[in-house]
């Protein structure tokens, strides 16, 4: 690994200055589970690494905010998967966070880092998309909020501007009751990257939101407002046909080692249908309880 200068700012302002001055030669260190791999394999070679973990304004807390939740930039996957509020109201995010890497990875990896790494296969991204999460960022010209769907560009690329960093991720209060779930397909049980990763939320208003990843350069959000997917009595053939239409934007890479495009597309339809079924069941169970 090439040597670099290590900076450990204690204020957000200092971090932004270091990041803005360093430009592409400065990289942020949160959990490090992606960064250190890329430093070691030489795919990045920054002159400065800015460790965010001593910045007083950034925390690892999950706070109630504006009727929803705000997840601090240093919050690790283990904390998200275990949080009772997330498990209750944003179940797909808890499930997505619970399958990132291994126990050891989840103890270090942050949600903010996961979205900034912007892997198309990130297991938290589909859940954040179906819940309409907002990314709160700070930079040289102040703070702004980016809808998660406008955040991802392609693997490793986001709409963060030079000098900007993520300070928190907000989950808005659901507009009504909903049932949600995250599912994925991997080559092996346990610790693996997803060949298909998907989240689904069915609302009591009949709107179904589905987001899927690992089928193109970035995770994709689609939705159905016809009520067909959310209807427990709608025929499976109708749902399958509708899903087929919704998934036309999927473009899995033919170069991936994990699964062929045909397999991924087939599994996308299977997992999509299953996730809709589970989300409907959870919505009904929530209504009964």
């Amino acid at each position: 690994m090439r040597a670099f200068a290590y900076e450990r700012p204690t204020s957000l302002g200092d971090a932004i200055t270091l990041l803005a001055e360093g430009g592409s030669d400065a990289r942020l260190l949160a959990g490090g589970t992606d960064l250190i791999i890329r430093l070691r394999d030489g795919s990045i070679a920054p002159r400065t690494v800015v460790d965010l973990k001593r910045i007083s304004e950034l925390d690892g807390e999950i706070a109630e905010h504006d009727g929803g939740l705000a997840i601090g930039a240093r919050t690790v996957m283990t904390a998200i998967a275990a949080d009772p509020r997330i498990r209750r109201d944003y179940e797909a995010l808890a499930e997505g966070a619970a399958v990132v890497g291994s126990v050891q990875i989840r103890n270090r990896a942050t949600l903010a880092g996961n979205i900034c790494n912007a892997s198309p296969a990130a297991d938290t991204a589909p859940a954040l998309l179906v819940y309409g999460a907002r990314v709160v960022v700070a930079g040289p010209s102040g703070s702004r909020t980016i809808p998660i769907d406008a955040f991802f560009v392609r693997s490793g690329a986001t709409t963060l501007a030079n000098g900007e960093l993520v300070t928190s991720i907000e989950l808005p209060r659901p507009s009504g009751r909903q049932g949600s779930v995250a599912v994925r397909r991997t080559r092996r049980r346990g610790h693996d990257l997803a060949s298909v990763t998907l989240a689904c939320a069915v609302g009591e208003d009949g709107v179904t939101r589905i987001a899927y990843g690992s089928l193109g350069p970035r995770p994709v959000l689609v939705w159905d407002e016809t009520g067909v997917l959310a209807d427990p009595s709608a025929p499976e053939a109708a749902k399958t046909q509708l899903l087929q239409t919704l998934f036309t934007g999927a473009s899995p890479s033919p170069r991936s080692m994990r699964a062929s495009p045909d397999y991924r597309l087939a599994m996308l339809r299977v997992l999509g249908l299953r996730a809709v079924g589970t989300a409907i069941e959870r919505l009904a169970a929530g209504a009964a309880g």
């Binding site: 290590y6 450990r8 260190l29 490090g32 589970t33 250190i36 973990k53 126990v103 050891q104 103890n107």
Partner: peptide, 13 residues
């Protein structure tokens, strides 16, 4: 007391 992969953590951390 938290398990981590020590290859993915700088000693400084």
């Amino acid at each position: 007391d938290v398990s981590v992969d020590s290859c993915l953590m700088f000693a400084l951390e």
